[in-house]
Structures are given as C-alpha cells and as structure tokens.
Design a binder for these strands. Structure first.
Length: 497
RNA sequence: GCUCCGGUAGUAUAUUCCGGUCAAGUAUAACGGCCUCUCGAGCCGUGGACCCGGGUUCGAAUCCCGGCCGGAGCACCA
C-alpha cells in the first residue's frame, strides 16, 4: 500500500514573509539537463508546499562569454513545464538593463561603488595585498563622470568596470570589491534579444542580487557554488539597506556515466558527435523525455535526495528504478523480436487463437489477438536470436501463452521444433524457458534506439501498428520503450529494463 | 596556495541542531526464497554503514580539537 512519501524538510523562516517566492534562473546558453533538476524541482516544490510563487528568470546578461541563444529560451520554458513545474511569473534580465543602471548610479552616488580603470592583473595584485587601487578613492563626481563615459561608449571592452565596495580586509580575496558591471562591444557581439542596444552589462552578482530583492524572492535555492556570491551580494544589500533573502545552497549532483556539462554538450553537438539535444546518450531533459523517462520519476528522485549540502552521486540505475515504478503499472505489454530468427514448428494439431493480455495485472485493459494457422502441420514464427542461441536440441521451451515446443535442430538462421503439448503447468514444473514470439504474417518492422545510440533492429507484433507516438510500452523480456515515430516502421527509444 | 562547505551500508537518505529510546530507520542495488505464462512487477527474508585519532561526559553518530578524504569558490561567467 501507499508508503509514506518522503517529504522535504521545512523551509526556514517562512513565517517572516507574507508569501514564499522562489525562482529558477538559468542562462539560456544551452538546453536544460538533469544537473538543473535540483534547482527547478526544489524551488518549485517549496513554492507549492508553502502556497507561494515560482518564478522563472532568464539570466542572459553575458552576450560575450556565455552568450544566450534565442532558441533556448523557449526550450527551457518547455522543459520546466514538462517537469510539472508551473511558472507563475517570468522575467528576462536583458529587459531590465535600465533598472540595473539606476541602481548602479545610486551606488556610485552614495560612494558604495566606483568605476575602476585598472587592468585586471593590476587590481588583483592590489586586492590580494588588501590595498585599494587609485580608483577606489576617487570622488563621487569623478565616478559619475566615468560612469557616464561608460554608458556613452567612451570605454572599450575591458577598459572600465564598476566595482562594489566591500571590505578590503575580508579573509576571502574573492569578495573584495567585486565587479558589478562591465563594457561589452555589442556592435561586434549583439545580444540575441536586445541586439546592440546596450554596451554596459551587469555581472551575475549585480543582476541576480538586485533582482532577487526587486522581484521579491524570499527563498533562494541554488547550488553551493554560489555561497561566496551570497557573501559578495550581502555587501550590496547593506549599501542599499536591504535584507538578504533566505538562502539554501545544496550540493552538487552527479550521475555516474553522464556528463552534466553544458559546454561539453554544446561542443559535442557542434562537432556532430551527437545527433541533437535529444541524443539518447545525453542527460538533457529533451533526451530523457524522448526515452520515456517520466518527469514524475525525476521529481521523486530529487525530492528524495533533498536539499543537503553534501554532494550526491546518483546512477542511471537509481533513476531507472524510480521510473520503472511508474511505468510498470501504466505501460501495456507487447512483443518485440530483436534480430529475428525463423522458428518452424511441426505437427501442430490445430488452429490456435490466442489472447495476449495488454497488462498482466490489469485484464480490463484488453488483449491482443493472434491466430496461428498451421500449413501442412507446420506453423512458422519469428523468435529472437538470443533465445534461439539458448535453444538446445531436445530442450522443451514454451511460446508464451501459446504452446510448448521441443527443439529438433538449431542453425544460424533457423530453428526447427515440434509441437510438445499445450500444458502450461507442465513447463512450469519443469521450469522450461518461456519465450516471446511473433507468428508469420503478423510482423511489423521496428527499430529501437538504445541509450548508447546504437539501433536494435527487429520486428514488433502487428498490434503495435496502431500505437501512437509518445506512448510508453513494455516490450516483454526486453524493456520499456517510448514510441517515437510510427509509420511504415516503428521507431522506439529504449528507456530501461 | 588562500577562503568556505561537507563526510551514515554499493548508491541515496533519516537520526546530528536540543548527547542516552541507535546492537542506527528507510529506499534502491545485491543475494536467497515465494509468487507470476516477461529476463518486468509483487511478497518474504539475508548480508551491508556512523572517515580516523584524541578530548569532554556516567554515556557521543550526535559536542570540542586535530588529522585524513571529498567538493565548491578564488573570472570584466552564470
């Protein structure tokens, strides 16, 4: 019966806020993959658990190094929705540059920030020695002038950057006077959404930091790689007189045998190593979807893992176990004969009509029906090469739901046998092998794309002709597959056993 | 190197905050059995863990210190 579902630990300090607001904020520079599942599902789930709001925010403020691609905005929306995470509100940072400018100016005005012209190496040297650079002590008026020059195009890329004043004695050099906005030559590198409209762009800590407050995020749920970013942003919050939201930093999630690296995925696609974003070798949501991995399984897995700060290493097996639990009761059963070999059975005494249940535990789902009509006492079938290889002369095996046969001869491309009774009880006692089969005349060509992108050629039973794309079925003794295309030939993607 | 964070069975997680009920719970994987016209599912059972060393204490997985191991950050990336 229903075991108690694992629950997430409660969010801290929810009572301090009128409404819990969380966000998922991807950079649209790649499609989403399993590595993002934690951020999406945890953020969404916590919002729902607290009757709050879940926001999608595109962090597309780097037209240079991590350049956003127009196409990905929509793919990301689609993936998030597919995961069952309904988006209550959406923001796109490239629409919000004037807002960031306004706050940059305020910070400059209040002497909480300065425009730094130092070359990065020079600044680094100073900051490592806890020494202010010359720009840090500039008067506000000079900073505002420099700022104006930044906006007007008076600086080329790399010539000036706005820095937030922090504590030069902070033990972590990474938080000392961090950069907030920089110049990007968008004539050369236009942004996919706003083109060359802006040439001063905020960095992550500026944009995300301001937005979290401005949008009203109460709980930030993100990876622990952002821990120092919180420390940095807290300085800006202090300058602005704001209170930093609650923040949860979970550990890194790895899947053994899958690389969750955007750059490798992008590179592999560009080089043609992969067939596309849904290549079965990838752990992108598009690929998982194509293989019949259900969003519910992913969600359950992520919730079971929870928001711990320790890193987790999951395996595909874990995901498959979650998914199998869902698929097993939902999926109808069919036969698929991989690498078919002919089986001739002699001395078949009569015509057999069989009804094969679509689901072993759910007879109400109905049956597939086949008629086996012997010609001159011989009935012809196709069986899997693997099963043929296991058949030894003299052995009795059972064709599932049909009858028993005794092997007479085994050749590379065909097996001969003779009828050996109808009794199921008999073979059960003798523990004979049960194999699936397709009777001659009822075969439907079928290819199954495996997780390593190899293709398993074979035939499916003719009842599969009416399967609709996107249906997930189980090929008995083979595994769960998702129907991808179904025209002259069935094209399916393998999920798992 | 510097700054953080973490370390419970193969994997993941509960207990850790507020020390005793912990000879450590659960899920999955493994193994064995039962059941079942699938090599699937289900049921029953078995084995399997508190990183190490000190300290505090009547008592430590839980608190303290040191070590070891793992991870993250140290970008004019997000």
């Amino acid at each position: 019966m229903a075991k108690e579902e694992k629950r997430l630990p409660p969010l801290p300090n929810t009572d301090k806020y009128a409404q819990v607001v969380t966000r998922f904020s991807p950079n649209p520079d790649c499609v989403l993959h399993l590595g993002s599942a934690r951020a999406i599902i945890l953020s969404h789930e916590y919002a729902r658990l607290n009757k709050g709001k879940f926001i999608l925010r595109f962090e597309d403020t780097d037209p240079k190094v991590k350049k956003p691609v127009f196409d990905f905005y929509d793919r990301i929306r689609k993936d998030v929705n597919w995961l069952g995470c309904k988006i209550d509100e959406e923001y796109i940072q490239s629409d919000r540059l004037p807002i960031y400018y306004e706050y940059a100016e305020r910070l400059l005005q209040n002497d909480n920030a300065y425009v730094c012209e130092c070359p990065p190496e020079h600044f680094r040297k100073n900051t490592l020695a806890r020494r202010p650079c010359d720009c840090r002590q500039l008067p506000v008026t000079e900073n505002l002038e420099r700022w104006k020059r930044m906006l007007e195009g008076g600086y080329a890329e790399g010539e000036a950057v706005v820095r937030i004043k922090t504590d030069l004695n902070h033990p972590n050099p990474a938080v000392r006077d961090w950069p907030a906005l920089r110049v990007i030559d968008t004539e050369k590198r236009p942004h996919p959404r706003v083109g060359s409209k802006y040439r001063v762009w905020p960095l992550y800590n500026m944009a995300a930091g301001l937005d979290d407050h401005l949008i009203g995020i109460t709980h930030i749920i993100r990876g622990k790689e952002h821990l120092t970013n919180m420390v940095r942003q807290e300085y800006m919050y202090k300058h602005l007189g704001w209170k930093y939201p609650e923040a949860i930093h979970y550990g890194r999630l790895k899947i053994t045998g899958a690389f969750l690296s955007k750059s490798k995925i992008v590179q592999g696609i560009r080089e043609g190593t992969y067939t596309g974003w849904a290549d079965p070798r990838l752990a992108t949501f598009a690929a998982l979807r194509k293989r019949g991995i259900t969003p519910h399984a992913i969600k359950k897995m992520i919730i079971d893992v929870g928001p711990k700060t320790a890193d987790v290493t999951l395996s595909w097996k874990n995901l498959y176990a979650y998914n199998r639990k869902i698929l097993d009761s939902e999926s109808n059963r069919y036969f698929f004969v991989s690498e078919p070999i002919e089986l001739k059975v002699k001395r078949v005494p009569r015509v057999f009509r069989v009804e094969l249940p679509l689901h072993p535990e759910k007879p109400e789902r109905g049956f597939r029906e086949y008629t086996v009509t012997p010609e001159g006492g011989i009935a012809t079938f196709r069986i899997a090469k693997k099963d043929a290889a296991n058949a030894a002369v003299g052995k009795v095996i059972r064709l599932m739901e049909l009858f028993n046969v005794k092997i007479k001869s085994v050749r590379a491309d065909s097996v001969e046998a003779s009828f050996a009774g109808e009794s199921y009880e008999e073979v059960r006692k003798s523990k004979a092998q049960l194999i699936h089969w397709i009777v001659k005349g009822e075969e439907f060509p079928c290819e199954v794309v495996m997780p390593d992108a190899s293709v398993n050629e074979g035939i499916a039973e003719s009842a599969c002709k009416k399967l609709k794309p996107d249906t997930v079925i189980q090929f008995e003794r083979f595994g769960f597959v998702r129907i991808n295309k179904n025209d002259a030939k069935l094209n399916a993607y393998y999920a798992h056993k």
